[in-house]
Design a protein around this nucleic acid. Structure first.
Lengths: 265, 265
DNA sequence: CCGGAAGTCAAGCGAGTGTTTTAATCAAGC
DNA sequence: GCTTGATTAAAACACTCGCTTGACTTCCGG
């Protein structure tokens, strides 16, 4: 209460002592969360790192859960707002029907901006919470769903116009798969591609800045793929991997796959 | 020690009392893990649900971490073994060079078999641990990396032969993105597509058994997509957005991307 | 029957957790 | 200076956690 006094203090020092302690707690908790993982973020570790008393966290945030939610909201809301803004901009410019490239770009780029080293804490927060959505408690899961619902609805609607040859439920699946790919792209820490355990597979590191375009190409072609493989895939398979024009690439997998949904995979 | 006595007991009752308690603990812990999440799996909750004493868990598994590892290994090792076996089968049948469809199918199908309701606990274990890899402690992460290393090496090598137009580092990225998509497909619980919060976007549920084929189509087309030539992604997309007079979204997408790498994406 | 291993059990330890309480400190307003 | 409200600090509270101990029961080979 007493908004006036609070405002006065705020105006006085561009952040009252309380305000500064609050953001210091938030920043410290985020850094701990990003570097050590959620389990390592205890009130006492926060207090020690932020140089405040343990009671301060409950004083400013009410509870540890509230602190965690605020920590997440601070990062995920701007991300999703930018996604929606970019999508809306595409709609305006393109006169109502953004292309698939536009849509995918609007979804991917805001996320991949977090791969900048300057945003590493934010990246970790987004990754851990968004991936953690799958393994979180129902309450946390519902909270996360709230923050993602608008984005999902907007992008699924746009995608359904961009790829009308797909059934609506197929579009929803591909939206989720896009999210999975983006999350993995976001989760791989900078430099992991050149990590020792990958040395056998990679001879040269990924050139800086080329990954986003590659991811967009991957997603665009994947999303627009026909749902029935019978039309597109034999062609693509032949053009890519059959230099000798040998017999068709029939394996166990291909046989299973050719029978489609009948086998109940 | 005393393998003889152990074997005798084992032979006697098709599982000694200890053996049966052991597997009961394992099954119970897995069910708790799948239904309530990792945080809810305490020694006391396991003991209560499995109708054993808390000391029994440490008696049989040595520690909680060992129990968790065994729980994970029991599910992930057969999964990855089947992936490798399917990949090897493709190589044999196709005489050295499996197609991209073969490779993707060999990777995807074993995982999606876990979406059967009968495998729901196994599905949850695989999802939670494999997604949790990103947010786990370094020790757990190293354990998980051990179990995935062979699969990754084999599939990346196969993919590099199947899509030789991509640079090795690009193939590695696409392998990871494939893993992200599969994990999301695996993480969505049965029936979630028709969940209330998705009702606005989906008018009809996904027909049973059609999802794997769709996912494979998505991945095959995505993986074989040409890499971009430049890194200036948003503008080229916007400028190529309107092919005059076409009017159909599918046409837009098709026109833009039928030319492969030429358009820059 | 008996010795001893295998298995079970209640009780408790020590460390850690989030949270609350109580009192002290600080900075302005009258 | 005194009052008042906003902070901060120290201590304790009320748990839960993984794990251990030591006694107890079961069961089988000899």
């Amino acid at each position: 209460m007493d908004q006036i006094a609070k405002a006065k203090r705020h105006r006085a020092s561009a952040g009252t002592p309380g305000e500064r302690a609050r953001t210091r707690i938030l920043d410290t908790a985020e850094a701990l969360f990003a570097n050590e993982g959620p389990a390592a973020v205890t009130l006492r570790s926060i207090a020690a790192a932020a140089d405040v008393n343990v009671a301060a966290v409950n004083y400013y945030f009410g509870s540890k859960d509230k602190l965690f939610e605020e920590m997440f909201v601070r990062r995920i809301v701007p991300l999703n707002e930018e996604r929606l803004a970019r999508l809306a901009a595409c709609v305006d410019v393109a006169d109502g029907a953004p292309t698939l490239v536009d849509i995918v770009t609007a979804y991917v780029i805001p996320a991949l901006q977090l791969t900048d080293v300057a945003n590493d804490s934010a990246r970790a927060i987004v990754v851990q919470y968004s991936l953690g959505r799958v393994l979180a408690t129902p309450e946390v899961n519902q909270m996360l769903a709230r923050y993602y619902a608008r984005v999902r609805e907007a992008f699924v609607a746009a995608l359904q116009r961009a790829v009308p040859h797909l059934a609506p439920h197929e579009v929803v699946w591909r939206y989720y798969w896009m999210g999975g790919s983006v999350m993995v792209a976001l989760a791989v820490p900078p430099g992991m591609i050149e990590a020792p355990d990958l040395a056998a597979a990679v001879v040269e590191p990924t050139p800086r800045g080329t990954m986003p375009a590659n991811l967009i190409a991957f997603l665009v072609q994947g999303i627009r793929a026909a749902s029935s493989v019978g039309t597109d895939l034999p062609d693509s398979a032949a053009t890519t991997a059959r230099p000798g024009g040998q017999g068709r690439g029939v394996g166990i997998a291909h046989v299973d796959f050719a029978r489609g949904g009948d086998v109940g995979l």
